[in-house]
Every structure is written in structure tokens, then in C-alpha cells.
């Protein structure tokens, strides 16, 4: 018989669609509650995704629905407060990124999770997207040699409209230490960390190129070096089209992708020294053609770049049921949180 965990969701913003659609379809979860400060929002989400009940008070939901797992999808500043209550109520916590506003908060939250003997997971969804997993396979198979460079680059036109550009009701994300980039930098950092052994040298240049008071920063250019591995992190609001590029370079070759328009370009020795450039061109050309068809189909079928989230959640629920290791470890979260703090720290800003 399939074990089913009682799941609850707090926060019904944009990302809730991905969590709730997973929970509505998963054989491992039963959605016992959806909570939001807006009664209309909680009610809509509960009805749309088949939750047992809507709530506007998460403490009431924890007491009445007694969920085994709570998904926290609220603004980052509220994560620690809400997650603490959930853990103390005996629920495992899956928390949207960034799990905490500061490294210290993460450590305190982790200590509470340990005390309560509950799991605490940060959503590091893009790690489970197909191209990232494929590139990771190339690295672990040694096809790219020893990894020496990583570049993660995100371009998002946040100033062109939408939630973050609304001056009439500024998003709470603007109050984060790195402003809106703080909401996205977790993705950049956790993708690089598997290949970055340590942080010996950190330099981050934060800019507000667009000016004005709403955005604290709209541009980041950062370099981190550890054990001779260079990692570059770029965030831009102006370079278009929008993209989320990830590239690793090793002593033998390199591989790259764009997670918003997924493809893989991998160049490494294949077909012998003389033929390798030709074979790489042919293979990559073919892969690009296949990707264009696949991406057209993805667009029609409304597949989003959140495919990795469904895999992460599925693996998390399976691990919780079987008592096996969780897909995101303490080290994954600790190093991510620590490096973000370091990038934001004034000492490392130039």
C-alpha cells in the first residue's frame, strides 16, 4: 500500500501553482490544507487543487490539519518564523528559496529542525532540471576533465513590468539585503557549488544601473575562486533576451545550457584528436535541432522551467516515506546560504 503524507501549503503566490499541482497529482501526498492571509486566495487554491480546507491562520492549520509536511511559499523574511512553528508542530518543512534572509538565521533554523527531529529542505529546483542533471553526468563521467570554471548567468527583465517593478505596492523582496536579486541568487549559487570546493577569494560588484529608489540593485557581477576553480555569477536586468545560462569548463571540454530554452552544447574529445572538432559540431548541431522541436512542444504543452521542482518534491516525499537521504542535504543549504551572505557582505564588495 502506498504511504501518503499529509501535506499543507502556506502562501499562494505564483510559485504555489507548481507545488499545488504536484501535490494534487502525487500518490504520496494528500493536501490537507492551504493557508494564506487572503481568505479568497486560500479558498481559491483549496478548491482548485482539492485541499481539505482553506485557512488564514497557519497555527490553526497546524493544529487542526496536523500536516506531516508543510510547504512554505511566503516572502523570505517570514520563512524563519513560520518554519519554526511548523517544525515545532512536528511537520517536515519544504521551504522556498532563499530559506533564510541571513546565514545565521539558517543555522538557527537548522538547529530547531534537529531538535525537533524533522526534515528541513530548501527548494533548489533547477538542480533537478534535465540539462543540469545531464551536464552533471558528463562531469562525473570525467568527459570534461577536471572542472576549472563555472559560469552562471541570469537575465531577467524585472524592470520592464510585473511584480518587482510595481512602485505602487513594492514587493517585500526589495527589503532583502540584496534587494530583488536576493530572491534569485540562490539559484545561481547552488548550481555552481557542486563544482566549487571552497570560497578562498570572493569579489562581488552590485549595481543599480537603472537607478531610482525601488531597486536596491539590478545587476551583479561576482567572482568566487576556490582551490583554483573560478566561478562567475552574473545577474542582469537589461541584457536580453531573458535567459538562465549555465556553463562548466574542464581541462578536457565544456558543456552549457540555457534553462529557459533548454538545450545542451557539450564539447569534449570524441572521435579522436583529428575528427573531434567535426564530430562535436555535428553532434551539437543535431542536438540543437532536436532541442528546437522539443522546446516548441514544451511551449505548446505549457511546460515551464520548473520541471526540476516536481522531481525534487517527488524525491523528497519518497525519501521522507522511506527514511532515505533527502535530495537536498545540510551541506547543500549551508554552503549556499554561507556564500550568499559572503557575496552580500560589504567586505567582499568592490
Amino acid at each position: 500500500m502506498t504511504t501518503v503524507l499529509k501535506a499543507a501549503v502556506i502562501g499562494t503566490g505564483v510559485i504555489s501553482k507548481e507545488h499545488l499541482s504536484f501535490l494534487a497529482a502525487s500518490p504520496h501526498a494528500r493536501l490537507v490544507g492551504v493557508c494564506d492571509l487572503s481568505r479568497a486566495a486560500a479558498r481559491y487554491a483549496a478548491q482548485r487543487y482539492g485541499a481539505d480546507a482553506p485557512y488564514t491562520d497557519f497555527n490553526q492549520m497546524l493544529a487542526e490539519a496536523q500536516p506531516d509536511v508543510v510547504h512554505i511559499l511566503t516572502p523570505p523574511q517570514s520563512h524563519k518564523f513560520i518554519a519554526t512553528a511548523c517544525l515545532k508542530a512536528g511537520a517536515h518543512v519544504i521551504c522556498e528559496k532563499p530559506i533564510a534572509s541571513h546565514y545565521q538565521d539558517f543555522q538557527e533554523l537548522w538547529a530547531i529542525a534537529q531538535e525537533c527531529d524533522r526534515a528541513l529542505i530548501e527548494d533548489q529546483n533547477y538542480r533537478f532540471n534535465e540539462p543540469i542533471l545531464a551536464i552533471h553526468d558528463l562531469v562525473t563521467q570525467g568527459k570534461l576533465g577536471h572542472i576549472e570554471e563555472i559560469e552562471v548567468r541570469m537575465s531577467l527583465g524585472l524592470r520592464g513590468g510585473g511584480r518587482f517593478a510595481d512602485e505602487n505596492l513594492p514587493s517585500p523582496i526589495h527589503q532583502m539585503p540584496a534587494g530583488v536579486i536576493h530572491d534569485l541568487i540562490t539559484h545561481l549559487v547552488y548550481l555552481a557549488l557542486p563544482y566549487l570546493p571552497s570560497f578562498d577569494y570572493i569579489r562581488a560588484t552590485w549595481n543599480n544601473h537603472g537607478g531610482g529608489d525601488l531597486f536596491k540593485y539590478d545587476d551583479l557581477d561576482a567572482l568566487v575562486i576556490g582551490d583554483n576553480v573560478h566561478a562567475r555569477f552574473r545577474f542582469s536586468c537589461t541584457t536580453m533576451p531573458e535567459g538562465f545560462h549555465f556553463r562548466v569548463r574542464g581541462t578536457e571540454g565544456y558543456a552549457e545550457t540555457d534553462l529557459f530554452q533548454p538545450y545542451i552544447r557539450a564539447v569534449y574529445p570524441r572521435g579522436g584528436k583529428q575528427l573531434s572538432p567535426l564530430v562535436n559540431h555535428w553532434c551539437n548541431g543535431l542536438d540543437l535541432m532536436k532541442a528546437s522541436v522539443r522546446n516548441f512542444r514544451r511551449k505548446i504543452m505549457q511546460r515551464t522551467p520548473y520541471e526540476g521542482l516536481k522531481i525534487l518534491l517527488d524525491r523528497t516525499y519518497t525519501a521522507l516515506i522511506n527514511g532515505t537521504p533527502l535530495p537536498i542535504s545540510y551541506d547543500d543549504m549551508e554552503r549556499t546560504s554561507r556564500l550568499i551572505d559572503a557575496l552580500v557582505a560589504e567586505d567582499n564588495q568592490r
Binding site: 487572503s38 481568505r39 479568497a40 486566495a41 481559491y44 510585473g162 511584480r163
Partner: peptide, 16 residues
Amino acid sequence: SGDFYDQFAGTVMATE
């Protein structure tokens, strides 16, 4: 205009 969540916030939550 905008996606469902923009319209929900600007129409439903504003009305609420």
C-alpha cells in the same frame, strides 16, 4: 492584463 496571479491580486485581493 498579466497572468492569473497578477489579475487575482489586482482584482480579487484588492476587492477583498
